[in-house]
Computed example of a mutant assay.
Amino acid sequence: MEITVKDLASLLNGTIEGDPDLRLTRPGKIEEGGAGVITFLGNAKYEPYLYTTSASAVLVNRNFQPKSPIQATLIRVDDVYACIALLLEKFGAPAPKSSGIHPQSIIHPSAKLGQNISIGPLTIIEEDVEIGDNVYIEAQVFIGRGSKIGADCRFLVGVKILHECSIGDRCLFHPGVVIGADGFGFAPQEDGSYKKINQIGTVVVEDDVEIGANSTVDRASIGSTILRRGVKLDNLVQIAHNVEIGENTVIAAQVGIAGSSKIGKNCQIGGQVAVAGHLKVADGTRVQGKSGVASNVKEPNQALFGYPAIDYHQFIRAHTIFKQLPELAKRLHELEKRLSKNED
């Protein structure tokens, strides 16, 4: 794709400081730049690169005030990150087009396929599966019996959707995603062994859900594990049986959510967070990475940090005191010695 600064500014409702006729050919990093590159400044720690970048144009917020001269043309916009999302969509690779059904795929005669479907080699689609229109399925994908797939979905290489799962419209599953494996259910026995509890429930994934590579969503023991509309999971996320994730909640990599917990809508959960089982987390909760949620979060829109997770600002204050503990202990010991002398 090639576009002029003038046309891009018009697309983004931006204002130009510099040459409106420059031709832009690709997005790039501000620290690397290059002729024809359009880049952006969204984080203040990257500002020093703005004054040295060789990029042709840079997106900045309207209220940004430079501290030094800038060689690049600036495009001032209301929201840099929103514009970057649109920009990457414009410059991004085109959506894959249907290439039909590969002869090395295996499709059960009872499966119902929509229009304009692409199915890659070594993909298996079992009996009574229903797939909507404009679905793109890459190689080595497995879709188990009785599963239902909505329209405009994309399943990349190696995705596994086990039996009787339901996937909504416009979902994107990255390589290695597993939907509907057994939940982790075992009953302890008197002799110390564990007996497997059959997991006979399903998984329901609603519309516009994206799941990162090698993430897993376990089927419910009874009922359904549910990912509501607009949920986004990063790579290596584990969602256990009977969990429910509220709409438009985003979860970063290596998060584990234990069985039967209910996460509210519009939550933001940082990387490597652990959520214990059978909990309820209120809408709008934000959990800092590496935290552990061990009790119900009843108040919405809280920011939590720590293990176990507490109010974010309270944790920061407590951590500041924690770093001072050796000095505080030393001072306390000296005070005790002085008090002992005074008592004597």
Results as ranks from 00 to 15, higher is better:
Tyr307Trp: 13
Ser54Gly: 08
Gly246Ser: 07
Phe64Trp: 11
Gln272Asp: 06
Gln272Met: 04
His163Cys: 04
Ser260Phe: 00
Gly289Phe: 00
Ala93Asp: 11
Leu122Lys: 09
Met1Gly: 15
Val287Asn: 02
Lys196Gly: 11
Ala85Glu: 09
Asn301Tyr: 13
Tyr81Glu: 11
Ala72Arg: 09
Val237Met: 03
Asn296Leu: 07
Gln324Cys: 11
Val205Ser: 05
Glu126Val: 13
Ile30Trp: 00
Asp311Val: 07
Pro20Met: 15
Ala309Gly: 07
Phe186Tyr: 15
Asn342Phe: 15
Leu74Lys: 14
Asn61Thr: 15
Val205Leu: 08
Pro27Val: 07
Leu335Met: 10
Ala111Glu: 06
Val159Thr: 06
Ile124His: 09
Ser221Ile: 06
Gln238Cys: 08
Asp21Leu: 06
Pro69Asn: 14
Asp191Ile: 11
Val205Trp: 00
Arg331Gln: 15
Gly284Cys: 07
Leu24Tyr: 02
Thr39Gln: 04
Lys29Ala: 15
Asn214Asp: 12
Val231Thr: 00
Leu12Ala: 04
Ile161Leu: 14
Ala95Val: 04
Lys67Ile: 03
Pro326Gln: 01
Thr123His: 04
Asp7Met: 05
Leu233Ile: 03
Leu74Tyr: 09
Val209Ile: 05
Ser98Trp: 14
Pro94Arg: 05
Ser147Thr: 04
Val80Glu: 02
Ile316Met: 14
His102Val: 13
Ala294Asn: 15
His313Asp: 15
Gly201Gln: 01
Leu227Ile: 01
Glu190Pro: 02
Asn134Ser: 13
Gly120Asn: 09
Asn235Thr: 13
Ala139Gly: 09
Ile269Ser: 04
Ile38Cys: 08
Leu22Tyr: 08
Ala93Trp: 14
Ile226Ser: 03
Asp19Met: 05
Ala9Ser: 12
Ala139Asn: 05
Glu244Ala: 01
Glu206Asp: 14
Val157Thr: 12
Ala35Gln: 12
Asp21Glu: 13
Thr216Met: 12
His333Asn: 11
Val141Gln: 07
Glu164Lys: 15
Thr216Ser: 14
Thr320Val: 15
Val135Ile: 09
Glu210Trp: 06
Ile143Met: 07
Asp208Phe: 11
Glu334Gln: 12
Phe305Gln: 05
Asp311Cys: 05
Gly183Ala: 07
Thr15Ile: 12
Arg331Met: 00
Arg228Ile: 00
Val205Lys: 02
Ile70Ser: 12
Ser56Trp: 05
Val178Ala: 10
Asp208Thr: 10
Ile38Tyr: 06
Gly259Glu: 00
Gly146Thr: 05
Lys280Pro: 00
Gly246His: 02
Val77His: 02
Glu2Arg: 10
Gly92Ala: 02
